[in-house]
Structure formats: C-alpha cells, structure tokens
Design a binder for these strands. Structure first.
Lengths: 161, 161
DNA sequence: CAAATACCCACGAAAACCCATTGTATCCCG
DNA sequence: CGGGATACAATGGGTTTTCGTGGGTATTTG
C-alpha cells in the first residue's frame, strides 16, 4: 500500500466566524492527484488531540484491508465483533466534507470540538494523511518533538506581523 | 467486491408523530450513486439492537457473500442450517421502503419495534451499510466503543440547544 | 367508512455558492 | 537586474439553495 502522492509541509490558516477554513493548496493538490474528488475525510486522531485527514480513496483502501482481514477469520466470533467496532469507528466516527472552488471546507462542529480547534488551524503533512491541530495544543503536548514545535511557533509569528 | 460508494458520517433525526424520518442527505446521496432507486432496505442488525439499512442492490451482493460462506464450509452440516437461517433473515426479515421527494421514509411499525426506535433515530455510516439506532440503546451497549458513544452524546446535545 | 399512507406546501436554520479584496509569489520585459 | 504586471492563495461578506421538519389535504385500501 505504497501511495504515490504524499502529504507534506505545514501551514497555519484562520477559521472564520462561519467555521470555514482554507485547506492549503499544496495539500489539496495531493488529494486531487490521488483521485479527483475535491473532498476530504476527517477523523479524530487516535493518539494525539488533533484531527486526521485524508482523501476518500484512502478511506476505501482502509476498508478493504479490514474486509480481507475479516474473511480470514470469518468463523471466529470475537473477530466479528472487533470488525464491527473498527468498521463503525472508520465510518461513523468520520465525516466527509467537500471543499468549494476556493478550497475551503466548513469544519463540522463535531470535528471542531473533537480536535479542539479554535480560531486557527495548523496543517501538518504526515505522508499518507495530514493532521489538523489547534497550534496551542501542539505546543503543550510533551510527545511532540521540539523541532516540530518550532515550526508551529514560526507559523504563529508569521501571522502577527 | 469493493463498493465504490461507502456510507459515512452520523446524524440524529426526529421521528415525527406519523412515524416519518428524514434519511440524512449524505446517506441518500450514496444510495443514489450506487443505483438510482430512492428506496432503502431495512433489516434487524444481526448483532446489535439496531437496524441495518442499505440500497436494494446491496441485498443481492449480500446473498452472494452468504453463498460463498456456505461453499467454504459445505462439509459442516451445521453450516447448512445456519445458511438457511441467515438467508431467510436476509430476505424475509427485511422491508423495502421508498423515501419521498423530501427524503423521508415512513418507518414500518415492525421495524420500529425491532429496532426499538423512539422519537429520535441515530444514523451511523458503516461503509457498505448504515445503521439506525435508538441513541439511548447505543449508549447502554457495552460492546460499543466509548468514542462512538461520544458521537451519540454530541448529537444529542446538539438537539437540546 | 375509517385508517393508514401518499402527496403538497411552508418555514427556519444551516450550508453551499458567488463575488470582491488583499497579500504574496511568479513572470516578463525593458 | 529591477519593477510592474500577473496569477493564485487565503479570507470576508452577501445571497441563494438545500435540508430537516411540521402540518394540511387528497387518495388508497381493507
């Protein structure tokens, strides 16, 4: 499952009063090269207090992986339940949102809450996916390398000028 | 067997006095992309106390999945019986209902009872299918991951404001 | 005829859409 | 090489459309 186009780079964008955010153009270009959808899938990150985002095709890929796993263990009742749970997490706990012609999404209120995203959204490329952070939360997280925090600090400074 | 369009996302909609419920637009769009039917098939979920729903075309697919399962275990006599049971469940114990121009179905009384659906219906995307829950029942089910219950709680809160 | 269902319209909130402005990086040509 | 023109990105604001929902009326069906 080596994806050809990977998400990379960082940006800090504003969330406006209506809850709209521009998806950085360099991330959008990856989405559109992977498939031609102009939509992103949002999910709570499983480890960090941020959101995880990817293109719809990647979601389908994750799904088929789950399916194949299930078929191997079809007779095992425990596997059935675990499959149900993971499947629900993958699809019920995510939201698919289209971005408009200017590259903005309307951040769904539930996701905004889950990711604790305020007036600014920090976008971080993470290869197969990208992340959306409340920059302050990233700075506070002890698990985040200092070099990465420097990037966040730089993006924040850039704004104030 | 990989379906192109998958059910994703969540919503909490009201069931009115006549027993009508709006199928969330984002689920309807998947149904209409899979085939052009404007109807859904309802069934009792095999594991959870909720309803399972999908487009008519998916019923056929489910049938072939069952068949394949049978072939794998045809030496096992118990499997034969299980196949008969599950096949009946898949076809006799389901109801096909059309939704109107505003996207509402009239929830069949039997299904409403089977799923114990009250004044609110929680819709959960599950990839190939979606589920319809009484939100209170989902919150009580120990097999449901906490993250998913958070979603149910959020949807319930959203309403009260 | 009664009860259930299908059809119709209507409203408020939210979301999608359109247009305009600003700032920044890029290009082009003198 | 410099400076103006150009293209695109991010953002603000207004308008239109859609969605979920309530309620009424017709129509079918047993």
């Amino acid at each position: 499952m080596a994806l050809e186009h990977l998400f990379q780079g960082s940006a800090l964008n504003a969330v406006d009063g209506k809850g709209r955010v521009s998806i950085p153009a360099f991330l959008r270009s990856v989405i559109e090269r992977r498939g031609d959808s102009r939509t992103i899938v949002l999910a709570k990150h499983e480890a960090f207090s941020c959101l995880s985002a990817y293109d719809p095709g990647y979601a389908a890929l994750k799904h088929s992986k789950l399916e194949r796993l299930l078929e191997k263990e079809e007779t095992n009742p425990d596997a059935q339940l675990e499959y149900q749970q993971r499947n629900l997490m993958a699809f019920a706990a995510t939201e698919e949102v289209p971005y408009d012609s200017s590259g903005r999404i309307l951040m769904p209120p539930m996701m905004r809450r889950k990711g604790e995203v305020g007036d600014f959204a920090l976008f971080l490329g993470a290869g197969e996916t990208f992340q959306i952070w409340n920059p302050e939360l990233l700075l506070k997280d002890p698990r985040i390398p200092e070099d990465l925090k420097d990037i966040a600090r730089f993006r924040l400074e850039e704004r104030r000028a």
